Structures are given as C-alpha cells and as structure tokens.
Simulated assay, not measured.
Amino acid sequence: MEAYLHGVSTRSVDDLIKALGADTGISKSEVSRICADLDSEVTAFRDRPLSHTTFPYVFLDATYCKARVNHRVVSQAVVIATGVSADGRREILGFTVGDSEDGAFWTAFLRSLKARGLTGVQLAISDAHAGLVAALRAVFLGAAWQRCRVH
C-alpha cells in the first residue's frame, strides 16, 4: 500500500514483491482491492464528525498535484484544513481535491466542515487568495482572518 500511495507504478510494485522473494508478483486486481480498502479508510476519515471539541483556530492551505483524470494527467488543487483546539492540540479537519481553488470550491469545502460539526472558529489563517477569504467570511461569520506569515 505504501509504495502505491507514493505513486509507484503497478509494474514496479510487482517487481518489488518479486524482489522480496514472493513467487508471484501482485496482480492488477490485487492493486484494485488494496485501493478499495484505502478508499474506505479515507472516506471514513473525511466523513467523521468534528463535534467532539471546538477549534478556535483553523489553518487553511492548498497545493497543486498532478492527477490522472479521465485518462489524462492534469493539475488538481488539494485543499486542507488543520484545526487547533483551545488546549493547543492540532487535528486535520478535512481535505478535498478539485479543479481549482476558486471561491465556490472553498465555500463548498468550508460548508462541508461546518456540516460535520466544526464550530467555534474565531481565527482562520491562510494565504490571501481572494476566493478563500470570501468563503471564510461567508461561512464562518464573525471569525477573524489573518494572513499566514509563511505566505
């Protein structure tokens, strides 16, 4: 699973399995089964409730990665939210992937966090992406925004 997650091709994983002494490598159907297991774990993580505590501080960011979509390699936005509780504990609140990080995309992502129980946001920290800042103001009314010092 780890090799596949790091983008190693099925053929290379097969070669690795053989190099480790297995008589046969790994089939495409076995890779599909492994990926299905990973998909269910990721879905459970992404859908878990966030109502167990409040997160007064939320960091938001995005990066772009290459992904295969409809048999083409394209650039995709991967956005992530990290919450910090009042006692300083950090937790990944959620992430999602989309075509770009426009305002509608950020708004949908933030609304999904809120629907899962994210409450108590007092300060959001992010870059100054206009769509993100507008989405924050629309979804978390009254929360302050601060530009991330790294950005």
Rank of each mutant, 00 (worst) to 15 (best):
T43A: 14
S29E: 08
F59A: 12
L60K: 07
A44N: 12
D61E: 10
V74S: 11
V69S: 10
D102L: 02
T82K: 14
V74P: 05
R46C: 07
K18M: 12
D39G: 04
L20A: 15
N70I: 02
R48G: 11
V78Y: 13
R33L: 07
L93K: 08
A19Y: 03
K114H: 10
G83L: 07
S32Y: 07
L20S: 13
D102M: 01
G94T: 10
V78T: 13
V73N: 15
D47F: 00
P49M: 02
L113Y: 05
V84K: 09
W106F: 06
R68I: 14
F59P: 00
D102P: 03
L113E: 06
L60A: 11
S12M: 02
G98M: 07
K114L: 04
A36R: 06
E41G: 10
H71E: 11
F105Y: 14
H71S: 14
K28N: 12
D102R: 10
V31S: 01
I17D: 00
S29P: 03
V8R: 01
P49L: 04
V79P: 00
D14K: 04
D37R: 11
A86D: 09
T10M: 07
S32T: 15
C35Q: 12
H71G: 05
A67K: 10
A22T: 05
A36C: 03
S85C: 06
T24Y: 05
L113M: 07
S29G: 08
C35N: 09
D99H: 12
L38R: 01
F45P: 01
A108H: 10
A108C: 02
T96E: 14
V73P: 10
A86Q: 11
I92N: 13
H71I: 03
T24N: 09
G88S: 08
S12A: 09
Y57F: 15
